[in-house]
Design a binder for these strands. Structure first.
Lengths: 156, 156
DNA sequence: AAAATTTGTAACTTTATAAGTAACGAAATG
DNA sequence: CATTTCGTTACTTATAAAGTTACAAATTTT
């Protein structure tokens, strides 16, 4: 299949939503992600159900942030997407009769489980707000150039 | 795509090869893996290039182990398969212009890299011979029942 | 030397799943 | 009531491994 890019994509969207002063339409978000509005709605649906974002219909509608990015760990986002399969690599059969096959599966599964735990731990360690912290200065400069005004410390 | 099951499959094959007293044909291996001989040849090709197994054609030919399983780490097997992509999850674009997208990719990539390192470390820690160590007794019993003879300690 | 066995390899089809797309009803606004 | 926007369903495309078919090349048996 295509590589599953939902996690980085919705993270990207959340960061934009935080900077937006009005709701962003699926159309606008689609342009940021180089895709179409329908896919945006489908992908964002999980985040809405999790209460991280809200969506309103009609004129002036779109997507808004409902929670501070400080309160959202990457793990929460991943879970809101339905915890999509992490690996493209798996075991051979579910419950093989052959003992050797079971041993092979067990060892493969062990390595994968260890990797999944590392992944999960890293996602739990980091909030979405953390993502822009190392780049805060860069982003501030970029914003200033774009808007022509100087942002106050703490604005983002 | 389908889940990549090459790693557990070739581990399974290596364990059988160790127990075999004659070369195993791709046909026989195919039956163990519930697949066909051609796929077996394709999948085993990397292990042959790595020198872990040998194959001979013609009558009485087939696949044999060329190295002790003690000398083969799971990581070596994985590498011999061409280090197939581990994740079904990836970043959005390679070098996005948008700073927020870059931040999202960076965070996702970091978690994936950490997971990959854990996976790799686990594969390096374990040899193929280790896979049957915890089950050695079970396998010995099974062999005895099948062959009707009692194996000596150390036979496997 | 001919027949049989077995690998090596190339070409093709199938499968699975996210991405991508189109369409339309429902809801909200102006 | 026209417009905007989401919600949802249905469909197509893309991708890579699995699965399959076929046949040449190498080896052994007869």
């Amino acid at each position: 299949m295509r590589t599953d890019s939902r996690l980085p994509r919705v993270l990207h969207v959340l960061l934009h939503l935080e900077q937006a002063e009005e709701p962003l339409t699926s159309e606008q978000i689609g342009k940021m992600l180089n895709t179409n509005p329908s896919l945006v709605r489908r992908t964002m649906a999980g985040l809405r159900e999790a209460g991280f974002v809200g969506s309103t219909r009609g004129h002036g509608g779109g997507w808004v942030l409902e929670r501070s990015l400080n309160e959202i760990a990457l793990a929460d986002v991943y879970a809101a997407l339905g915890s999509p399969e992490l690996f493209s690599l798996g075991r051979s059969a579910d419950a093989p009769a052959c003992l050797l096959e079971r041993a092979a599966n067990l060892a493969t599964g062990k390595a994968l489980e260890a990797a999944r735990e590392t992944f999960q731990a890293e996602l739990e360690r980091v909030t979405v707000a953390d993502l822009v912290r190392p780049h805060a200065q860069k982003i501030r400069e970029h914003q200033e150039k774009r808007t022509g005004k100087v942002l106050q410390r703490g604005d983002q």
